[in-house]
Amino acid sequence: MMTRLVTDRLMMRRAQSTDLEGFHAVVSDFEVVRMTSSWPWPADRAYTKTRCVPINAAHGMAGPVLCKGEIVGIMGALSMYDDGPELGYMFARAHWGQGFATEMARALLDHVWAQYDWDVIKASAYDDNPASVRVLDKLGFHEVEPTIGTCKARGGDFPLRCFQLPRPPLTRV
Rank of each mutant, 00 (worst) to 15 (best):
63 G>Q: 04
102 T>N: 12
75 M>Y: 06
60 G>S: 03
55 I>R: 01
49 K>H: 14
84 G>M: 14
63 G>W: 03
85 P>A: 15
126 Y>V: 08
47 Y>R: 06
70 E>K: 12
124 S>Q: 11
132 S>G: 13
89 Y>M: 12
94 A>F: 05
103 E>F: 09
125 A>R: 15
147 T>K: 06
87 L>G: 04
65 V>I: 08
42 P>R: 03
87 L>N: 05
113 W>D: 02
53 V>Q: 11
69 G>L: 04
159 P>C: 10
49 K>V: 10
153 A>R: 02
140 G>I: 11
75 M>L: 15
52 C>S: 13
110 D>K: 01
127 D>V: 07
81 Y>V: 07
161 R>L: 12
125 A>L: 07
50 T>Y: 14
100 F>Q: 10
83 D>V: 08
107 A>E: 12
127 D>T: 09
117 D>F: 00
71 I>D: 08
92 A>M: 08
107 A>P: 02
75 M>W: 03
57 A>P: 03
59 H>Q: 08
83 D>S: 10
154 R>I: 06
77 A>N: 10
90 M>L: 15
42 P>S: 03
117 D>I: 00
113 W>H: 05
157 D>R: 11
117 D>W: 00
66 L>N: 00
63 G>N: 04
136 L>N: 03
149 G>N: 04
126 Y>S: 06
61 M>W: 07
90 M>C: 15
111 H>I: 01
124 S>D: 12
53 V>P: 03
159 P>V: 07
98 Q>H: 08
109 L>F: 01
150 T>V: 13
44 D>S: 09
92 A>W: 14
123 A>S: 10
60 G>A: 06
119 D>T: 08
128 D>T: 06
136 L>R: 04
123 A>H: 01
132 S>L: 14
66 L>G: 01
44 D>G: 07
53 V>A: 14
59 H>R: 04
55 I>E: 00
87 L>H: 06
151 C>R: 08
60 G>F: 00
51 R>L: 07
143 E>W: 01
107 A>I: 04
132 S>D: 09
68 K>C: 09
132 S>I: 13
70 E>A: 09
81 Y>E: 12
115 Q>K: 14
153 A>G: 04
98 Q>F: 07
87 L>V: 04
109 L>S: 00
45 R>I: 14
65 V>M: 02
82 D>S: 13
121 I>Q: 05
70 E>M: 08
146 P>N: 14
106 R>C: 04
87 L>A: 10
90 M>G: 10
134 R>L: 08
63 G>L: 04
42 P>C: 02
152 K>M: 10
109 L>Y: 00
71 I>T: 12
87 L>W: 05
76 G>V: 02
123 A>W: 01
135 V>A: 10
74 I>D: 11
82 D>V: 07
80 M>C: 02
111 H>N: 03
